[in-house]
Structures are given as C-alpha cells and as structure tokens.
Design a binder for these strands. Structure first.
Length: 405
DNA sequence: CCTCCACAGGAAGCGCAGGAGT
DNA sequence: ACTCCTGCGCTTCCTGTGGAGG
C-alpha cells in the first residue's frame, strides 16, 4: 500500500493537468479571434449602459463556443460597469422556471430559497434591474435543452418593454441548428438578432490548439511530434472536436505515467483512442434502460454464435448479420433467464432504431435472398467488448448471466 | 398472378410520475 | 394540500412493403 508522499513523488510527464481539462479557459483562443471580436461587439453596448444585442451561436461540440463566450465574459467582468452577466447551462436549468429562478437568485439574495411563484420572481427581477439601471446579459448554453423555450425567450425579451432603465439580452448557444425551426417566428427573430457559426477545426488548426495546450500541460518534450499529429488527425477526421483531441492526449499521458515512461508516442495515442472510445460507449450504455441494454446484449451474444442468415449461407461478403426476428427471440430468452419482463416487439423495434442512432449497432434492409421484409443487424463494435460493458453496467444481474450459461 | 411471410412503422390509447394551478 | 394536466414509456392494433413460393 503506497503512502501519499510516495504517490506525490512519482514521476509524471504532466505539468498541469487542468490545462487539458475541457473546462479550462485559455487566455488566448487560437483561430477564434474573429468570433470573439464579434461577440464583444454585440455585447459592448451593455458597458455603455445601452441594451446589448441578442446573439445566437451555433457550432458542433468542441468547436470553442462555450470557451469563446466565457473568455469574453471574463474580459467583460474586468470592466468598470453596472452591467452584469450570468452563465447557465440549460442541461441543468432546463425549464423557464428553473432559468428565471437561477438568474434571480444569482443577484437577489432573498430569492435564494425555492418555492416562489414565477410572477414574484419576475417582478423582483424587474425591480432590481430598473432600480440599478442594470444591463444584464444572460448566457444560455445548450439552449435547445429548455423545454418551454418559446415561453422563456418571450418572457426575457418582453422584460425590456417594461423597463425604463436597464435591460436584458440573451446569448444562446446550441450545437443543433435544427432546433431553431422549433421556435415560433417572434422568438426566433429576437433571439437570432445576430447569429454566429463556429466551424469545426481541421487537422492543422487542431494541431496548433493541442500544441498550445501541451506546452503548458506537459513537461517539455513529453509529446512526440508524430503523436501530436496523430491525435490531431484522429480528432479532426472523427469530429473536429477539440475536447476529444485533448481527452486523447490526457489519456495518453496517463498511460505513459502508469507505465513509467517519459514520452508519448503514436502507440500511446492509439491506445488512448481505444480507451476513450470504450469510455464513451460505456457512458452511452449506462444511460440506456435495462431492457434496451439486454437487446444490445442479445445482438452481441448472437453475433458471436452466428445467426440464421450466415448459417443459410445467405451472405456473399462474409458479414455476420442477424435477423430482427431471431434477435427478438434471443432477447426474450435472456429476459426470461434474468427474470426481467420483456417489452413488446413493437417497442423492441424502437429500441433498435435508437441503438442504431447511437452507433451501437448497424442495420440494413434485407434485399434479395431473404424472405420477407426485415432488417439485418450487426453490432457496431466488437461483440466481446459490448458484452463486457453491458455486463458491467448490469451490476447485480451478473449472477443471472452466469446461471444462463 | 396472387398469397403468404416476416417484418416495419403509424395511430390510438393506457398508466404513471411530476409539475402547474388553485 | 388538493386536484388537474401533461409528457413519457409502453402496449395493442393495424396497415404497408417487397420478395418467396405456389
């Protein structure tokens, strides 16, 4: 059993792990100068006591949206001004009430406790804004998660009509462009007063970003040039997501540390990719309902044994596809042995659709050679790995699985 | 050609939990 | 604190689809 002092004395190639975390806001944002300037421009009015413009920011995950906004907020707060900003993530504050309450209690201590009516919160907020002639900027990250978004936007925008001094402006951030169509036209036109799109990073930019971070995050010379290139290339081709790239490097560093090495090379990045991928699959599977996990297990299990399709010699390219029907049979069987009540065949099909969308399985329509109209299924990842992960997430049911064998 | 098979997926409705309204 | 309402997960029922088999 090691002591803390031993652990602290262990050699590490990290200088500062925080720099590699997704929450870190760097002082310089490479390739986002233009976007940062535009955000500053839109919000600058508030510093002069005028109402700032509303802003809608769109871009895929890991393209620096949140980072850029937080960066601007940081600068904004350093200025002498009665203007205020609030940042909230709508994954947590996902309704009009929760958002309004969070905004209010940020500035008005007496509303700290919950249980106030929405109208009281609203009035207090107006009183506070008008009293101090305050310009408030509300940043709503992952804004598409708000259930009654139309209501919320309408309320926030209308507030300005009731105010003589002070005002509210909204900065919405989303990674889904399609949600804009869900808004009614009035909310849409006020929220999207100004729009800004963040493009994914290409491999070159990704490399520069990683380079900037690893100079602060790792000790000098800890990362091979080719390992850096590889990490940048993987992240750029898979998603353009800088967070993913950073995660790769972080994991690769941990792998090297664990092995007592001193340099990250290509093999560590490859290993990190597999490891991170495994983590992400696990995260997804964990959120799945029990029955859906059993469906996934059934697919994995059956694909190892081989389905009827391959036994009938129906496939030319050797792909081991499964028939929808036989997977349902297998699923039913597993449910039985686990003493879990099975879902109807109709709902099972919905489960399949969702699993496909999540990339956990792939399906194709049956063509010639197959009787009837069905779907051919195969796992999206190695069956062994999927079974293991499902197994782990099932926890207590492990005993049941053993009996089944 | 028609019929049957083996499914896909839409429509309606049901029971339940949690939030809104009073 | 009480009911009322609504969204969600799910079942039941049903119509559609495209090739196989007669």
């Amino acid at each position: 059993m090691p002591s803390f002092s031993e652990i602290l004395q262990r050699r590490t190639i990290f200088r500062d792990k925080d720099v590699l975390s997704p929450h870190y806001v760097p002082d310089v944002l490479p390739f986002r100068e233009g976007e940062v300037e535009k955000i500053m421009l839109v919000l600058s009015g508030a510093l002069k006591g005028m109402r700032a413009g509303n802003l809608f920011i769109y871009g895929k995950t890991g393209t620096g949206k949140t980072c850029s906004v937080r960066h601007v907020m940081k600068k904004f707060m350093q200025m002498e001004s009665p203007a205020k900003t609030v940042y909230l993530n709508c994954r947590i504050y996902n309704s009009k009430y929760k958002v309004m309450h969070k905004i209010a209690k940020e500035f008005i201590p007496e509303l700290e406790k919950s249980g106030f009516g929405i109208s009281l919160i609203y009035e207090k907020l107006i009183e506070w804004l008008a009293g101090g002639k305050i310009q408030l900027i509300v940043v709503l990250d992952e804004i598409d998660m708000v259930k009654d978004l139309n209501e919320l936007v309408y309320t926030l925008v209308r507030t300005n009509d009731e105010l003589l001094g002070g005002g509210i402006s909204v900065v919405g951030i989303s990674n889904r462009l399609s949600f804009k169509e869900m808004l009614d036209p009035r909310s849409k036109s006020s929220l999207c007063e100004t729009e800004l799109t963040f493009a994914p990073y290409d491999a070159e930019k990704m490399k520069a970003i990683l380079k900037q971070r690893l100079e602060q995050g790792f000790v000098q010379g800890a990362v091979d040039e080719s390992a850096l290139n590889l990490a940048a290339a993987i992240a750029a081709t898979e998603s353009g997501d800088a967070r993913y790239a950073l995660r790769l490097l972080l994991r690769a560093g941990e792998i090297v540390d664990a092995g007592g090495g001193q340099r990250i090379d290509d093999s560590h990045v490859e290993e990190a990719r597999r490891s991170v991928e495994g983590d992400m699959i696990k995260e997804v599977i964990q959120t799945l309902p029990e029955n859906q996990r059993i469906v996934l297990y059934a697919v994995a299990n059956l694909s190892q044994k081989g389905g009827r399709y391959s036994k009938l010699g129906g496939n030319e390219d050797g792909e081991n596809f499964l028939l929808s029907g036989e997977v349902y049979e297998e699923y039913s069987r597993v449910c039985n042995s686990l003493c879990v009540k099975k879902r109807s065949a109709r709902w099972y099909r919905e489960y399949l659709n969702e699993l496909e969308m999540l990339g956990l399985i792939t399906t194709i329509e049956s063509g010639r050679g197959m009787r009837g109209h069905t779907r051919l299924i195969k796992p999206g990842y190695p069956a062994e790995e999927l079974k293991k992960i499902v197994w782990e997430t099932m926890g207590l049911e492990e005993e049941g699985k053993k009996k089944e064998k």
